[in-house]
Design a protein around this nucleic acid. Structure first.
Lengths: 239, 239
DNA sequence: AGAGGTCAAGTGGTATGACCAGTTTCGTGG
DNA sequence: CCACGAAACTGGTCATACCACTTGACCTCT
């Protein structure tokens, strides 16, 4: 006996998902006008407050533009939406999107070393305790999935040490996108999270306050799995 | 006659803002339990659907955790929220937050060159027309505020050319945070958007497909205003 | 005393229907 | 022909009732 990931999606969730799916698939194009709340409610067999809640959430995510008096129109999510849309794009229906994975990996490889650098500059030795603890948890984790979560905790400490609200929020968004896909990517990412020595080396550089070394060691830590992921994606694309 | 900055904020907007303000100010700490929807509605003098809509939007932004049967609890926005929170943090009540500005500028300086690099690699000459058009609009703009908007359009083209959904969504989020503050930052940013030659040089490198040169010229374009902003912020901090 | 079940109270989830407030449309009267 | 305004949309708000879930107190049986 193991899991109950539940799934009790609420009615507004369902409506939100349904509309978003049509937008991502192109059935609903940018500029297109949505049916009125009343018509949508009737068509979907739900109450008006339910579709309203979904539409308001879509408006907050910059997916639609809703103005009183006029009809609600679809926006181009690629032009306006924020990182919070990423999880929905990464796994549209259980299957991971190759282009999105590549994009995440390359963004990660570019941003994470900067975070390590900033953490070394601005916090350095203050992070020693937290880093030790999180690395201990990492080596203690017995299966690759858990190790991935502990690795995320490791980066969480560095992000905190970087003292940059923007990188913090970016990290939150990327992590939220990544978490649902952990299982699907675990095979390849094992090549990274198993390198506990690389984590220790990076932590040492950060704790010592050596920004340049921290950056280099972060690159060293992230590169192998990133490269492996890229080649795997290339193979997938050809088939 | 010029303005109608509107302000017709809806009731749920008002509730959302109110709760968020208390969270950012610390009146509402992480882990704390919110009053029930009914009590909140009565206390704020609005209907329950209104507070409900606000709470659902806060839940989507990872600001609160709402579970049926239990009371809604406040999350640590620094740990969970995404980039979409940035605009609210940047200008809490009309005044820009210094730390947030610095964070945005340093993130920009780190990410934008990578975008230029990717655009050069992946799109190169295909961007020639769009870049010419947007630079023409930039030099034609007569006041600094308009020039800032045209500069954002310039980067929009590069981001599109970078063909990376993650950088695209990041850019959208940063732009959304930046836009409300354009007026406040226009004096310093003029040092950047007035350098039309630097834009042209960057565009030429990108169009030529020279990734390294594109990166360097992006750094060259962004650095002066960034440095100026940093020193200005330091002075502000001391007073 | 402890383990198990039951039930009441409180929470969020959903639905209905009414009315308010803007926009657009189109017919009517100038 | 034009200007005006009523009507018919649209989303915005509210009140109310009921459903679904969680918790915890209480009660029962062992």
């Amino acid at each position: 006996m193991n899991l109950q990931p539940i799934s009790r999606r609420s009615v507004p969730d369902e409506v939100f998902e349904r509309l978003l799916t049509e937008m991502v698939e192109g059935t609903l194009g940018p500029g297109e006008a949505l049916p009125s709340e009343r018509k949508l409610a009737e068509a979907l067999g739900v109450s008006r407050p339910a579709v309203r809640e979904a539409l308001q959430r879509m408006a907050q995510a910059k997916l639609v533009d809703v103005r009183q008096g006029e009809s609600t129109t679809v926006l181009d999510y690629r032009k306006h939406a924020g990182l919070d849309l990423l999880p929905r794009l990464l796994m549209p229906g259980g299957q991971v999107d190759i282009g999105v994975v590549r994009s995440i990996m390359e963004a990660r490889l570019h941003i994470a070393p900067k975070i390590a650098e900033l953490a070394a500059e601005r916090s350095g030795p203050r992070l020693a305790g937290d880093l030790d603890a999180v690395i201990a948890a990492l080596v203690a984790a017995d299966d690759p999935v858990r190790r991935q979560h502990r690795a995320l905790d490791f980066w969480d400490v560095l992000v905190e040490g970087a003292s940059s609200i923007v990188f913090r929020l970016m990290f939150n968004g990327l992590r939220a996108a990544y978490l649902p896909a952990v299982d699907a990517l675990t095979t390849i990412m094992a090549a990274e999270v198993d390198r506990t020595d690389a984590y220790r080396a990076l932590a040492a550089a950060v704790t010592a306050g050596d920004a340049r070394q921290a950056r280099d060691r972060a690159v060293d830590l992230l590169t192998p799995a990133t490269e492996r992921m890229f080649t795997a994606l290339r193979h997938l694309e050809q088939s």
